Simulated assay, not measured.
Amino acid sequence: MTESVSRARPNLLANWLFAVAALVVIIVTVGGITRLTESGLSITEWKPLLGALPPMSEADWQAEFGLYKQIPEYTQINGPAGMDLEAFKSIYWWEWIHRQLGRLIGLALAVPLAIFAVRRIIPQGYFWRLFALVALVGLQGSFGWWMVASGLETRTDVSHFRLAIHLCTALILLGGLIWTALDLKALAKGDTTPARLRPVATWTGIILFVQLLLGAWVAGLNAGLASDSWPLMQGRFLPEFDSSRGLFWALTHDPFLIHWMHRWWAWVAVTALVLMARKVKPVNRKASLAIHAAFGTQILLGIATVMSGVEFHLAVLHQLVGALLVAAYAWGAHALGRSE
């Protein structure tokens, strides 16, 4: 039996999960950098164990560069542009760091979980919840390679659908880590009843998920470059877009229409978050303030990113604050779930 009540250490486990959640925020941010620097396809093989080591010699670097030279991104874009080995190294390192962070998160969850299980300090009812978080990290790694694989044969970029799955899974993991940590914190204070997801938090979560999905599509299609003006696009409210292959195709593929949906669905998300934060305020004022601060900052960063033509630092901050918004939402939803 891996669970115990008498030897349980819920505070220890909660702090562990908060630390892993911080690593997830970091990897989401680095993932944004990887996307903005077009680094994601620089490592063309998936080696879960041996891939932890970077090239150690000039011959190793030439071999890695040789593999990259075989994919469409190089043959059609970077090769004709004159990419040399030094330029390749600059994108390789970002992808390598991104993958090492993924490995670190997996180890930071799996190894302590095994130790805590052996020592029987996991509270009753929590082992399988924690195991599910470990499994989600493994699934996330698989999604990451599945995403990369989409850009290795015929495309010059990864599939924006697979990128969205990869990013949204990371954000779901982040929310799950925070929610479980907060349940453990409450357990440490004597409250043995896990929080429930209230209807207002459910609907807000769905609306926020749609916005995050659209944001991932914007990133995957480089749709942030579709307009550098706000609030209008191309001098009009609704921009011109390609509807020749049907409206559904345009809603899921056209960068101008997806950019437009992302910028205006944001206000639906803000409305939902404001309503939720108002309900959170009486039970946890700090969580309510965190939600307001996160979405307010995110809106300003989104507008600034558009108007700057997707300036690198602004775009990275936009992704970082998006992750923090998910964390704030999870905090607020959990606070509501513990209220009567």
Rank of each mutant, 00 (worst) to 15 (best):
M147Y: 00
V148P: 00
A149I: 06
S150C: 00
S150N: 02
S150K: 04
S150L: 01
G151E: 02
L152K: 01
L152A: 01
E153A: 11
E153F: 07
T154Y: 08
T154V: 11
R155M: 10
R155W: 02
R155Y: 02
T156M: 03
D157F: 11
D157C: 00
D157H: 13
V158R: 07
V158W: 11
S159G: 02
S159C: 10
S159M: 07
R162V: 12
R162F: 12
R162S: 12
L163R: 08
A164K: 07
A164C: 10
I165V: 15
I165S: 11
I165W: 14
I165K: 03
H166Y: 14
H166I: 13
H166N: 15
L167E: 02
L167N: 11
L167W: 10
C168Y: 13
C168H: 14
C168T: 15
A170N: 01
A170T: 06
L171E: 11
I172C: 13
L173F: 06
L174W: 03
L174A: 03
G175K: 02
G176A: 09
G176E: 06
G176W: 01
G176P: 05
L177V: 05
I178Y: 04
I178M: 10
I178D: 10
W179C: 09
W179E: 12
A181I: 03
A181Q: 06
L182Y: 04
L182C: 02
D183R: 04
D183N: 14
L184D: 05
L184P: 07
L184T: 07
L184M: 06
K185I: 07
K185H: 09
K185C: 04
A186N: 09
K189Y: 01
K189Q: 14
G190L: 01
G190T: 04
D191G: 00
D191H: 07
T192M: 12
T193P: 01
P194W: 00
P194S: 05
P194T: 08
A195V: 01
R196G: 05
R196T: 14
L197A: 12
L197T: 12
L197W: 11
L197M: 11
R198M: 09
R198P: 00
R198D: 00
V200S: 09
V200I: 15
A201Q: 04
A201R: 05
A201I: 05
A201Y: 02
A201F: 08
W203E: 02
G205N: 03
G205M: 05
G205P: 00
I206R: 13
I206E: 10
I206A: 14
I206V: 15
I207Y: 08
L208V: 14
L208A: 12
L208Y: 04
F209N: 04
V210Q: 07
V210S: 05
Q211N: 13
Q211V: 02
Q211D: 12
L213P: 00
L214Q: 09
G215A: 11
W217I: 03
W217P: 00
W217D: 01
V218C: 05
V218E: 01
A219L: 13
G220I: 08
G220T: 04
L221A: 08
N222G: 08
N222D: 15
A223H: 07
A223F: 06
A223Q: 06
A223M: 04
G224L: 02
G224D: 07
G224S: 08
L225R: 13
L225N: 12
A226L: 10
A226D: 12
S227W: 09
S227T: 15
D228G: 13
D228Q: 15
S229W: 11
S229V: 14
W230M: 09
